[in-house]
Design a protein around this nucleic acid. Structure first.
Lengths: 215, 215
DNA sequence: TCGGTAAGCTGACGGCATGACAGGACAAGT
DNA sequence: ACTTGTCCTGTCATGCCGTCAGCTTACCGA
């Protein structure tokens, strides 16, 4: 799909070039963690990477372009989130376990990539299709799996027919994403991680099966 | 609380001053709706308001400062969201109606203020306490009411004791906020508003009462 | 070993936004 | 008309943006 990495002016990047490019991406990632998105300047990223702004513009059209690149990499990793749902059963004790592990895995992924995910979220909310697509790519891996699980349950008559699996799955995943990006916020407030997770798991279980879990 | 509106250099603003100040805020609000946060420049806001950048800096330290001002105004309005929960009963048919109206009202508020809320969300996620406080101010009005409702239900033995009302209410509100800010996203995808809302209401009802609603 | 060629990097530059200031325009009271 | 305090803007130094020409470095075939 990607074919070859190319510079803005069309040259193909060699070993050294790819290294600098990656270094710029890494530094940008760090900057995003430590300072507000609005204040991240090309010159700072370049300085941090021990190179010049001109070099940055050789590989990326602008900051946004570079962020998209990082996000793309992350989205590829994120596809493995599917494993949190696929092949799971949602009945009995293992159903509760599935919910718990889904919450745990999701929050963990978000925590690890919070800086970039913030920006992706913003871009998507602003209506930028490229960011929206990336967000979808990540969330879809979970949403689709969940939707499938729910359809199966519906087919077996275990879940009301008038529920839209897609809407329900989408809402649940959106909730997980939202709580994840404001984890620190919850802490600063009264709510502790320890009591947050089980409640999320409960909501997930309730949403998918319509029933209280048997713990 | 606010006392008097003051310029950056300490003067008190008179009638005319307050008017230009407000005009700048309005224009900034419009700009935020039409272009990415990162690209909103002081000079554009000033031009749009028919004034000069210097005037802008007389009233606000920077773009962020002005955004905070708008957000503060919005948060004050937003406090009335409490009415969506307070004095509601969560049993029987009126319980379902309460859930539906909460969802409806919340989404509507978010849709009306999406541009600023995006930025507030970003600021909060980046750890800026000022933005976080504003976000709290809005969400708390709903969260606290919900928490109270749940505590009452718990006291009556209608809800499991091992649930943390605060965590549950917080999660539900976070979900509403998240879905609201990606409403367009859901639409672009397959999910329609019409099927989204009932599902959200269902989740809210399930979360608060632990039971399926009687419609 | 030695060019030749393409990749890789940077200094320098015009352009624009930022943020500060001092001074001019304006409204209101005397 | 004159004074006073509010309000706005022209101007300027500073710093980042984004581009280009040109220099250095690595690779490769003869």
């Amino acid at each position: 799909m990607t074919g070859q990495v190319r510079t803005v002016d069309g040259r193909v990047a060699g070993r050294r070039g790819q290294a600098t490019r990656q270094k710029l991406l890494d530094c940008l990632g760090e900057m995003l963690s430590s300072s507000p998105y609005r204040d991240v300047k090309v010159i700072d990223v370049a300085r941090k990477a021990g190179t010049s702004p001109a070099t940055f513009y050789q590989y990326f059209p602008d900051v946004e372009g570079a962020v998209l690149e990082i996000a793309e990499q992350m989205a590829t990793e994120g596809a493995q989130l599917t494993s949190l749902v696929e092949g799971r059963t949602w009945v009995g004790k293992s159903g509760w376990a599935a919910a718990e592990e889904l919450v745990e895995g999701f929050l963990e992924f978000w925590r690890r990539n919070d800086a970039i995910l913030r920006v992706v979220d913003l871009g998507a909310a602003e209506g930028d299709k490229r960011f929206y697509k990336i967000r979808m790519k990540i969330l879809n891996s979970v949403t689709n799996s969940l939707t499938e699980s729910m359809k199966e349950l519906q087919a077996k008559g275990k879940v009301d027919k008038d529920i839209s699996p897609a809407a329900m799955a989408g809402s649940l995943v959106a909730m997980l994403a939202a709580v994840a990006s404001h984890q620190k916020g919850f802490q600063t407030w009264g709510v502790k991680q320890a009591e947050l997770k089980p409640n999320l798991a409960l909501l997930v279980h309730l949403g998918i099966t319509g029933k209280k879990p048997t713990k």
